[in-house]
Every structure is written in C-alpha cells, then in structure tokens.
Simulated assay, not measured.
Amino acid sequence: MHKILPVILYQLTACLFIEVVIIAKLVVMGDSITQGWDGHKQVDNPIPNELGKLAGFDKVENLSVGGTTMTGSKGLPSQVRSVNFADYDYALISFGTNDYWQQSESLQDMQNGLQQAINKMREENPKIQILITTPIQGWENNTNSLDQKNTMGVSQSDIDDMILSVARLNNLKVNDWRNNPIVTSDNYKLLLGDQMVHPTQATMDLMANRYFQAFFNGQKVTINQDDQPDNPSEPDHQPVVLEMASVSGNWLGTFNDNFQKIFQALVDYSTDDNRSIEWQKKDFKMLNRGTYVYLVKTFELIKQVVDEFLGSEDIYDDNFDEVNNSGIIVPHTLIVAELIEIANQNFKKLQNIIGSIQQSY
C-alpha cells in the first residue's frame, strides 16, 4: 500500500451495508443500432433483447432512440434523466455513430456528456455495473476509413479512443469493435441492412453474442448476495472526476469542489498517521487579493503533497511510463481567463495522476 502525507480534512464515518439483489436488471442507452433499426424497419429482436436472453437478465429496459448522440436532446442526457438507476444492476451505453455523422459536437463535448452521465448513474446507484462499447464502423457519406475526419475535425477512431479513455478512467468494462470486428470493409454490404451503418437482424445477434462474451465472459448473470460489511479502512476506488471551470460559470465554486475531491482522494490513500497537512475551504465571491493568496497556497499545498508521494512511490500511467512529478503549475496571475486556463490544466493532470494511483493501489 502506498504511503503519502495524510491530509486532515474530514471525519470519515464507517457505514454498514447489506445488499441482496433478488433479480438482475439491465438498462440500455443508445441510438438506432441498439433500438433495433436495420436501415429499413424495426427488428423483432434488438441487441438488448438478445443480450438479455444470453446473459439471463430478468428485465431489460431499452431506452435507445434513433438518430441521437451523446449530448443530443433525446440522446444520452435525456435517456439518463428518464430512469432511476437504483432500480438496475447493469447499464449499457452504446453511442458514437451519430456523433460522427451529424458533425455537430466537439470531442470534448462528447466526453463531457458521457462523463456526466456516468456520474449521475453512480450517484443514484454506486453499485451499478456500467458497460460501454465503441460504435461499429460506418460507411455513410462515402466514408471508408476510421481515421477520416468530419467537419468538426473528429474521426471515428477519435471517438473510439475517447470512449476507451473514459472507460479506463472510470474502471468500466468496455468493448472495442476495432478489435476483431464483425463488420469490415469486406463484408459491410452484406452485414449492414442499408449497406452503410445499420446492422441486419443476423448481425445484431452476432453483436449481442460479442457483448455477452466481452462483458459477461459468456456466463449467465448470477444473483449477487453480499452480506459482508464494507471495509472502512479501504478506499472504494471510485474514480475521481474533476470538473473544468469556465469564465462564464461559478469557477470559484468549481475550484473548491475540485480541491475537496483531490484532498479526499489523498485522505483515502494515506497510511502515515504521524504527520498531517491541514487545508480549510474558503468561499469567495470574486477574485481579489485574498482569493488570489488562497488559490496560490492551495495549489502549492497540492503540488507539495502529490510531488512527495510520486517521488517516493512507483506509479505508472496508462503507457506504463513512470510518473515522477505532478507537473502542477502554481498560478501567479490575477487575470481570470489565464488563471482558469492554468487551473484546468492542473485539474486534468491531477485527475490522471489520481487515476494512476488508484490503479496501482
């Protein structure tokens, strides 16, 4: 277990949880492919239905809506708002096709929408198992390569890579269709009902079976009975997600929310009870000298604690490169736009570092 300087921030209270899941339920969020559109008609057995049969789910709720995206009005945000995830054991997310073809979203917009959806699911049900898949390759508008950019400068591979990144950050099970794809350049005219993007019924059945293997190892879902108390001495490994601040928003509030998440994560991974570093949250309405001093000292404190930890422990990133220092920049500016830009860069670095620490724990 890694040792770092403990941060005295909260009094943590242990809770006892006893959970008995009587039946297994799956909720699916997606576009026309999981809705069951084959390019000409709605099929009788969409992918979620077949997956439910294979995995033995007692209930499958399919919220998918054709033509939707990760941030669209009837897409992922709307579908997430329409359901109480406390009622489900598993959730499958399948978007990305329309995000590429509609050419209306930046990659960052997609990522933010996806992460916000995951956050809401876990807020409503911390025990839910979230599954995610990249979209199958499409050939609409004479596109013949996963690397071909749309007018937003985004390729199908860019979307796939973003989904994988979010999955790794949140410790989700993920299926990447680029690995041993079912639909390829050689067979897409046969396997896609419209010869562009929508799979036939037979292809949907093959896709459901692939999900069954990728997400459930080809095994039926079993009743989960956990009557053991949670161990209060161990962190729950829930990914730390830091929000990006904006000039038009409550950026000081965002800063403080992120500071609390960072310090709480450091508390979770502290084992040395002999030393402490104190930090106290302060609320400000505007940027003035007092706010400036508070922000500088807070970033200095975070940099000190994280750098000391990284200097004493072997932590590696997703590329298996050793992380030796945080790279945090302490902002020394009273220009709001510059301050926010520097802070957001720090928050991105810290989110990745904390994720690497959690994986190494």
Rank of each mutant, 00 (worst) to 15 (best):
P6A: 02
L12F: 09
T13K: 08
T13C: 00
I18Q: 11
E19L: 08
V20S: 14
I22M: 13
A24K: 15
A24C: 13
K25W: 10
V28P: 03
Q35C: 07
D38L: 06
K41G: 10
K41W: 11
P46K: 06
P48W: 08
E50Q: 04
E50L: 03
K53F: 05
G56C: 10
G56L: 10
G56V: 13
L63M: 15
S64T: 01
G67S: 05
T69E: 11
G72T: 05
P77I: 01
Q79T: 03
A86Q: 12
D89P: 00
L92N: 06
G96D: 00
D99K: 03
Y100V: 01
E105L: 09
E105A: 08
E105R: 03
E105D: 05
Q108C: 06
D109M: 09
D109A: 08
N112H: 00
N112W: 06
I118N: 14
N119T: 15
N119K: 15
K120F: 06
N125S: 04
Q129K: 15
Q129G: 03
I130L: 07
G138M: 10
T143R: 14
G153K: 04
S157T: 10
D158I: 06
I159D: 00
D161E: 11
M162S: 11
A167V: 09
R168N: 13
N171P: 00
K173P: 00
W177K: 11
W177H: 15
N187D: 07
K189G: 01
L191E: 00
L192Y: 09
G193S: 01
D194H: 13
A202F: 08
M204N: 02
M207K: 07
F215T: 14
I223F: 12
D227T: 09
D230P: 01
S233F: 15
S233G: 10
D236L: 12
Q238H: 14
V240E: 11
E243R: 01
S246H: 05
G249Q: 04
F255H: 03
F259Y: 15
F259I: 02
Q260Y: 08
Q260K: 11
K261P: 03
F263P: 00
F263Q: 06
V267N: 12
D268P: 09
Y269I: 15
S270V: 09
S270T: 09
N288M: 10
N288P: 01
R289S: 09
G290Q: 08
Y292G: 04
L295K: 01
T298D: 03
Q304R: 08
V305S: 01
V305R: 07
V306R: 04
E308G: 01
L310T: 10
L310F: 03
S312P: 05
I315Q: 14
D317W: 13
F320L: 12
D321L: 05
V323D: 11
N324K: 09
I328N: 02
H332N: 03
T333C: 06
I335T: 12
A337H: 04
E338G: 02
L339R: 06
I340G: 00
I342H: 06
I342R: 05
A343I: 02
A343G: 08
N344C: 05
N346L: 01
F347T: 04
K349E: 04
Q351K: 12
N352A: 14
G355H: 14
S356I: 07
S360N: 14
S360A: 15
